[in-house]
Protein backbone atom coordinates (compact mmCIF):
# COMPACT_ATOMS: atom_id res chain seq x y z
CA UNK A 1 0.00 0.00 0.00
CA UNK A 2 2.79 2.32 1.04
CA UNK A 3 4.68 1.35 -2.10
CA UNK A 4 1.67 2.22 -4.26
CA UNK A 5 1.38 5.62 -2.62
CA UNK A 6 5.02 6.32 -3.28
CA UNK A 7 4.56 5.36 -6.93
CA UNK A 8 1.56 7.66 -7.26
CA UNK A 9 3.48 10.50 -5.64
CA UNK A 10 6.38 9.93 -8.03
CA UNK A 11 4.05 10.04 -11.07
CA UNK A 12 2.42 13.26 -9.82
CA UNK A 13 5.82 14.82 -9.24
CA UNK A 14 6.90 13.84 -12.73
CA UNK A 15 3.71 15.26 -14.24
CA UNK A 16 4.29 18.61 -12.53
CA UNK A 17 7.55 19.00 -14.49
CA UNK A 18 5.97 18.28 -17.89
CA UNK A 19 5.49 21.70 -19.49
CA UNK A 20 1.86 22.54 -20.34
CA UNK A 21 1.66 23.77 -23.94
CA UNK A 22 0.67 27.45 -24.09
CA UNK A 23 -2.76 28.41 -25.43
CA UNK A 24 -1.10 30.36 -28.22
CA UNK A 25 2.37 31.25 -29.42
CA UNK A 26 3.32 34.76 -28.32
CA UNK A 27 5.75 34.99 -31.24
CA UNK A 28 2.70 35.44 -33.44
CA UNK A 29 0.21 37.00 -31.05
CA UNK A 30 1.29 40.29 -29.53
CA UNK A 31 -0.86 42.08 -26.97
CA UNK A 32 0.55 45.52 -26.42
CA UNK A 33 -0.03 49.26 -26.17
CA UNK A 34 1.50 52.27 -27.82
CA UNK A 35 1.38 56.01 -27.27
CA UNK A 36 2.30 58.08 -30.31
CA UNK A 37 4.08 61.44 -30.31
CA UNK A 38 0.72 63.26 -30.11
CA UNK A 39 0.02 61.41 -26.86
CA UNK A 40 -2.71 59.19 -28.32
CA UNK A 41 -2.78 55.69 -26.85
CA UNK A 42 -3.62 52.53 -28.81
CA UNK A 43 -4.07 49.08 -27.28
CA UNK A 44 -3.80 46.33 -29.82
CA UNK A 45 -3.69 42.60 -30.49
CA UNK A 46 -1.41 41.91 -33.43
CA UNK A 47 -1.87 38.44 -34.91
CA UNK A 48 0.55 37.26 -37.57
CA UNK A 49 -1.58 34.65 -39.33
CA UNK A 50 0.88 33.74 -42.07
CA UNK A 51 3.78 33.58 -39.60
CA UNK A 52 1.85 31.16 -37.42
CA UNK A 53 1.36 28.83 -40.39
CA UNK A 54 -2.30 29.86 -40.48
CA UNK A 55 -2.78 28.45 -36.98
CA UNK A 56 -4.45 31.72 -35.98
CA UNK A 57 -8.03 31.37 -37.14
CA UNK A 58 -11.28 33.28 -37.05
CA UNK A 59 -14.77 31.91 -36.52
CA UNK A 60 -18.01 33.81 -36.69
CA UNK A 61 -21.21 33.06 -34.74
CA UNK A 62 -24.56 34.60 -35.65
CA UNK A 63 -27.22 31.90 -35.71
CA UNK A 64 -28.84 30.19 -32.78
CA UNK A 65 -28.02 26.56 -32.13
CA UNK A 66 -30.28 23.81 -33.42
CA UNK A 67 -31.59 23.40 -29.87
CA UNK A 68 -32.47 27.14 -29.81
CA UNK A 69 -29.45 28.07 -27.68
CA UNK A 70 -28.25 31.66 -27.94
CA UNK A 71 -25.25 32.84 -29.94
CA UNK A 72 -23.23 33.38 -26.75
CA UNK A 73 -24.10 29.85 -25.50
CA UNK A 74 -23.00 28.41 -28.84
CA UNK A 75 -19.71 30.28 -28.57
CA UNK A 76 -19.10 29.19 -24.99
CA UNK A 77 -19.86 25.56 -25.84
CA UNK A 78 -17.42 25.70 -28.73
CA UNK A 79 -14.79 27.82 -26.95
CA UNK A 80 -14.28 25.60 -23.90
CA UNK A 81 -12.08 23.26 -25.97
CA UNK A 82 -10.37 25.99 -27.98
CA UNK A 83 -7.43 28.29 -27.39
CA UNK A 84 -9.37 31.50 -27.74
CA UNK A 85 -7.31 34.65 -28.22
CA UNK A 86 -10.15 37.17 -28.37
CA UNK A 87 -13.87 37.30 -28.92
CA UNK A 88 -15.75 40.36 -30.05
CA UNK A 89 -19.10 41.53 -31.31
CA UNK A 90 -18.66 42.08 -35.03
CA UNK A 91 -21.63 43.27 -37.09
CA UNK A 92 -24.43 45.61 -36.06
CA UNK A 93 -27.67 44.43 -34.47
CA UNK A 94 -31.25 45.72 -34.42
CA UNK A 95 -33.60 46.23 -31.47
CA UNK A 96 -34.63 42.58 -31.59
CA UNK A 97 -31.00 41.40 -31.33
CA UNK A 98 -30.87 40.23 -34.94
CA UNK A 99 -27.69 40.99 -36.92
CA UNK A 100 -28.28 43.79 -39.42
CA UNK A 101 -27.53 43.15 -43.09
CA UNK A 102 -26.92 39.97 -45.05
CA UNK A 103 -25.76 37.37 -42.51
CA UNK A 104 -25.15 33.68 -43.12
CA UNK A 105 -23.59 31.48 -40.45
CA UNK A 106 -22.08 28.25 -41.73
CA UNK A 107 -24.68 28.02 -44.50
CA UNK A 108 -27.59 28.93 -42.22
CA UNK A 109 -29.34 32.13 -43.23
CA UNK A 110 -29.69 34.48 -40.28
CA UNK A 111 -30.73 37.57 -42.22
CA UNK A 112 -31.14 37.76 -46.02
CA UNK A 113 -31.80 41.47 -45.98
CA UNK A 114 -29.13 43.29 -47.95
CA UNK A 115 -28.40 46.63 -46.27
CA UNK A 116 -26.68 49.69 -47.68
CA UNK A 117 -23.35 48.85 -45.94
CA UNK A 118 -20.60 48.47 -48.49
CA UNK A 119 -18.63 45.71 -46.77
CA UNK A 120 -19.31 42.01 -47.11
CA UNK A 121 -17.03 39.94 -44.89
CA UNK A 122 -16.48 36.27 -45.67
CA UNK A 123 -15.08 34.04 -42.91
CA UNK A 124 -13.72 30.83 -44.37
CA UNK A 125 -13.80 27.45 -42.67
CA UNK A 126 -9.97 27.55 -42.81
CA UNK A 127 -10.06 30.54 -40.46
CA UNK A 128 -9.23 33.22 -43.02
CA UNK A 129 -11.20 36.44 -43.30
CA UNK A 130 -11.65 38.44 -46.51
CA UNK A 131 -13.74 41.46 -47.37
CA UNK A 132 -15.26 42.70 -50.56
CA UNK A 133 -16.60 46.14 -51.37
CA UNK A 134 -20.13 45.60 -52.69
CA UNK A 135 -19.97 48.90 -54.56
CA UNK A 136 -17.20 47.49 -56.75
CA UNK A 137 -19.33 44.51 -57.84
CA UNK A 138 -16.25 42.33 -58.26
CA UNK A 139 -16.80 39.44 -55.86
CA UNK A 140 -15.54 36.12 -57.21
CA UNK A 141 -16.41 32.72 -55.74
CA UNK A 142 -15.15 29.19 -55.96
CA UNK A 143 -16.93 25.85 -55.75
CA UNK A 144 -20.62 25.04 -55.83
CA UNK A 145 -20.73 24.97 -59.62
CA UNK A 146 -19.83 28.67 -59.99
CA UNK A 147 -18.14 29.53 -63.28
CA UNK A 148 -14.51 30.48 -62.68
CA UNK A 149 -13.91 34.21 -62.97
CA UNK A 150 -17.58 35.17 -62.76
CA UNK A 151 -17.96 38.50 -61.00
CA UNK A 152 -20.92 38.92 -58.69
CA UNK A 153 -22.79 42.20 -58.46
CA UNK A 154 -24.79 41.39 -55.34
CA UNK A 155 -26.24 44.86 -55.00
CA UNK A 156 -27.08 45.50 -58.64
CA UNK A 157 -28.16 42.10 -59.98
CA UNK A 158 -30.96 40.10 -58.40
CA UNK A 159 -29.73 36.98 -60.19
CA UNK A 160 -26.24 37.42 -58.72
CA UNK A 161 -27.67 38.01 -55.25
CA UNK A 162 -29.80 34.88 -55.33
CA UNK A 163 -26.94 32.84 -56.78
CA UNK A 164 -24.65 34.11 -54.02
CA UNK A 165 -27.11 33.15 -51.26
CA UNK A 166 -27.63 29.71 -52.85
CA UNK A 167 -23.84 29.30 -53.08
CA UNK A 168 -23.38 30.32 -49.42
CA UNK A 169 -26.03 27.81 -48.33
CA UNK A 170 -24.62 24.95 -50.38
CA UNK A 171 -21.00 25.66 -49.44
CA UNK A 172 -21.81 26.27 -45.75
CA UNK A 173 -20.18 29.67 -46.01
CA UNK A 174 -20.12 32.33 -43.32
CA UNK A 175 -20.70 35.95 -44.30
CA UNK A 176 -21.82 39.17 -42.67
CA UNK A 177 -22.32 42.74 -43.79
CA UNK A 178 -20.84 45.82 -42.16
CA UNK A 179 -19.36 49.24 -42.88
CA UNK A 180 -16.06 49.09 -44.67
CA UNK A 181 -14.01 51.85 -43.06
CA UNK A 182 -10.78 51.24 -44.97
CA UNK A 183 -10.43 49.22 -48.16
CA UNK A 184 -7.20 48.61 -50.04
CA UNK A 185 -5.44 51.09 -47.74
CA UNK A 186 -7.86 53.91 -48.64
CA UNK A 187 -10.35 55.52 -46.28
CA UNK A 188 -13.89 54.56 -47.34
CA UNK A 189 -15.73 56.27 -44.53
CA UNK A 190 -17.46 59.64 -44.98
CA UNK A 191 -16.09 62.43 -42.80
CA UNK A 192 -19.55 63.09 -41.31
CA UNK A 193 -20.20 59.46 -40.22
CA UNK A 194 -21.17 58.96 -36.54
CA UNK A 195 -19.82 62.18 -35.05
CA UNK A 196 -20.61 61.11 -31.46
CA UNK A 197 -17.29 61.07 -29.60
CA UNK A 198 -16.57 57.69 -28.01
CA UNK A 199 -13.95 55.00 -27.52
CA UNK A 200 -13.29 53.19 -30.83
CA UNK A 201 -12.35 49.62 -31.67
CA UNK A 202 -11.49 48.19 -35.07
CA UNK A 203 -10.41 45.01 -36.81
CA UNK A 204 -7.83 45.52 -39.53
CA UNK A 205 -6.56 42.85 -41.88
CA UNK A 206 -3.57 43.56 -44.05
CA UNK A 207 -0.01 42.76 -45.00
CA UNK A 208 3.25 43.55 -43.29
CA UNK A 209 5.05 45.64 -45.94
CA UNK A 210 8.43 44.18 -44.96
CA UNK A 211 7.59 40.48 -44.95
CA UNK A 212 4.36 40.34 -46.97
CA UNK A 213 2.76 38.26 -44.21
CA UNK A 214 -0.98 38.53 -43.57
CA UNK A 215 -1.75 40.05 -40.21
CA UNK A 216 -4.99 40.60 -38.32
CA UNK A 217 -4.96 43.45 -35.81
CA UNK A 218 -7.59 44.48 -33.29
CA UNK A 219 -6.95 48.06 -32.24
CA UNK A 220 -8.63 49.84 -29.35
CA UNK A 221 -8.40 53.61 -29.20
CA UNK A 222 -9.57 54.60 -25.69
CA UNK A 223 -9.70 58.33 -26.43
CA UNK A 224 -13.19 59.54 -27.42
CA UNK A 225 -13.30 60.44 -31.10
CA UNK A 226 -15.76 60.51 -33.99
CA UNK A 227 -15.84 57.38 -36.15
CA UNK A 228 -14.04 59.15 -38.99
CA UNK A 229 -11.31 60.59 -36.77
CA UNK A 230 -10.85 57.27 -34.96
CA UNK A 231 -10.58 55.41 -38.28
CA UNK A 232 -8.09 57.88 -39.71
CA UNK A 233 -5.89 57.76 -36.60
CA UNK A 234 -5.86 53.97 -36.39
CA UNK A 235 -5.12 53.63 -40.10
CA UNK A 236 -2.20 56.07 -39.72
CA UNK A 237 -0.99 54.16 -36.66
CA UNK A 238 -1.02 50.85 -38.56
CA UNK A 239 0.63 52.35 -41.65
CA UNK A 240 3.31 54.29 -39.82
CA UNK A 241 4.09 52.34 -36.65
CA UNK A 242 3.19 48.78 -37.57
CA UNK A 243 4.38 48.97 -41.21
CA UNK A 244 1.10 47.49 -42.31
CA UNK A 245 -0.76 47.99 -45.55
CA UNK A 246 -4.41 47.70 -44.54
CA UNK A 247 -6.47 45.52 -46.89
CA UNK A 248 -9.65 46.29 -45.00
CA UNK A 249 -10.77 47.65 -41.67
CA UNK A 250 -14.16 47.28 -39.97
CA UNK A 251 -15.80 48.66 -36.86
CA UNK A 252 -15.92 46.37 -33.82
CA UNK A 253 -17.61 48.79 -31.48
CA UNK A 254 -21.24 48.80 -32.47
CA UNK A 255 -22.53 50.48 -29.31
CA UNK A 256 -25.42 48.42 -27.99
CA UNK A 257 -23.48 45.14 -28.14
CA UNK A 258 -20.07 46.43 -27.14
CA UNK A 259 -18.67 43.03 -26.22
CA UNK A 260 -14.97 42.24 -26.20
CA UNK A 261 -12.89 39.73 -24.25
CA UNK A 262 -9.17 39.22 -24.64
CA UNK A 263 -7.30 36.26 -23.21
CA UNK A 264 -3.69 35.79 -22.17
CA UNK A 265 -1.90 32.70 -23.36
CA UNK A 266 -2.62 30.95 -20.05
CA UNK A 267 -6.34 31.48 -20.65
CA UNK A 268 -6.80 34.25 -18.09
CA UNK A 269 -8.68 37.39 -19.10
CA UNK A 270 -6.55 40.32 -20.22
CA UNK A 271 -8.18 43.61 -19.28
CA UNK A 272 -6.09 45.88 -21.52
CA UNK A 273 -9.00 45.80 -24.00
CA UNK A 274 -12.42 44.92 -22.69
CA UNK A 275 -15.98 45.66 -23.76
CA UNK A 276 -18.27 46.87 -20.99
CA UNK A 277 -21.18 44.53 -21.77
CA UNK A 278 -21.57 40.83 -20.92
CA UNK A 279 -21.16 38.30 -23.72
CA UNK A 280 -24.89 37.59 -23.66
CA UNK A 281 -25.50 41.09 -25.07
CA UNK A 282 -23.99 40.15 -28.42
CA UNK A 283 -26.14 39.19 -31.40
CA UNK A 284 -23.07 37.99 -33.26
CA UNK A 285 -19.52 37.13 -32.24
CA UNK A 286 -16.21 36.93 -34.05
CA UNK A 287 -13.69 34.74 -32.26
CA UNK A 288 -9.98 34.46 -32.91
CA UNK A 289 -8.36 31.24 -31.78
CA UNK A 290 -5.10 29.31 -32.09
CA UNK A 291 -5.17 25.76 -33.40
Amino acid sequence: MKKNNSLLFAILLLCSFIPVPPAYDTNFVEISGYTDKRGITYNFVYMNRTGSGNRIKAKYFASRGEDGSSVSSRFMGWGKDMNVIAVTSAGYMDRYSVPVGLTIDNGRIVNSNLESFDGLIIVYATGGVVATNLDNADLTLQGGGITAGRKFDIRGSYRDRQDFIDWAESQEATVFQTHLLVYKNQLEIASNASTTPRERRFLAVGKDVNTGETCHVIVNSPESTSLYEGTRRVKDFLNEYKDMEVTFMINLDPGDQNVFFLFNRDGSVNNSIRGPLPITSAANLLAYYYQ
Binding site: D94, R95, V110, N111, E115
Partner: peptide, 8 residues
Protein backbone atom coordinates in the same frame (compact mmCIF):
# COMPACT_ATOMS: atom_id res chain seq x y z
CA UNK B 1 -35.39 35.32 -43.13
CA UNK B 2 -35.42 39.08 -43.74
CA UNK B 3 -35.14 41.19 -40.63
CA UNK B 4 -36.05 44.88 -40.94
CA UNK B 5 -33.54 47.12 -39.18
CA UNK B 6 -35.46 48.82 -36.36
CA UNK B 7 -33.11 50.84 -34.23
CA UNK B 8 -33.69 52.23 -30.77
Amino acid sequence: GFSPDFGN
